[in-house]
Simulated scan of single mutants.
Amino acid sequence: MCTSSGPARESAVALVEVGVETFACTARVETGYERDARYELFATRHPQLSDYQARTQRRIPIVALSRRR
């Protein structure tokens, strides 16, 4: 589970829960080559993502989470 305190931005703080652990992350919307490479990786593992992309005109965002220290 991931929660955020507001609308999507270039960089935001998110609270992530994995099992019983909760920690803060920086959420960053990927762009350019990084976005395209990660999208292809996800689409390979989850074919329904490509099916959804084919049915919409918007570009599906890819958000990278980096654990804050």
Rank of each mutant, 00 (worst) to 15 (best):
R35I: 08
V13T: 15
S5L: 10
V18K: 06
Q48V: 07
M1E: 14
S11I: 07
A54C: 01
D36K: 12
L65N: 06
Q57R: 07
H46C: 11
Q48K: 04
E40W: 04
E10Y: 04
S66P: 01
E40V: 06
I62E: 02
P47A: 08
R35K: 11
Q57A: 03
Q48D: 07
R38V: 08
T3S: 13
E21G: 03
D51S: 06
S5H: 06
H46F: 14
A54P: 00
P7W: 02
M1C: 13
E30G: 05
A27N: 04
G6F: 09
S50E: 03
C25M: 10
R9T: 11
C2R: 13
E30T: 05
A12C: 12
E17N: 05
E34D: 15
D51I: 02
A37L: 14
S66E: 15
C25L: 06
T22E: 09
A14W: 10
L41H: 15
E40K: 15
L49C: 01
M1L: 14
T56E: 04
C25A: 11
R28P: 03
T22R: 10
L65F: 12
Y33M: 12
T44M: 11
T26C: 07
R38A: 13
S66G: 04
T56V: 09
E34S: 15
L41N: 07
A14C: 14
A8L: 14
L15T: 07
T26S: 07
D51A: 08
A12F: 11
M1F: 08
V63T: 12
T31Q: 15
E40A: 15
S4H: 04
L49M: 02
A14P: 01
T31K: 12
T26H: 06
T44S: 10
R55P: 00
T22Q: 08
V63E: 05
M1P: 12
Q48P: 00
Y52I: 06
Q53Y: 01
C25R: 04
E10H: 13
G6L: 05
T26G: 07
F42R: 06
P47W: 09
S50C: 02
P61I: 03
R35C: 10
F23T: 05
E10Q: 14
A24Y: 09
G32D: 13
A24D: 09
A43P: 03
R68A: 13
Q48R: 02
S66K: 09
E40Q: 13
T3A: 10
E10V: 10
E21S: 09
Y39I: 01
T26R: 11
G32C: 12
T3Q: 13
R58C: 00
G19S: 08
A37S: 14
I60G: 02
T44C: 10
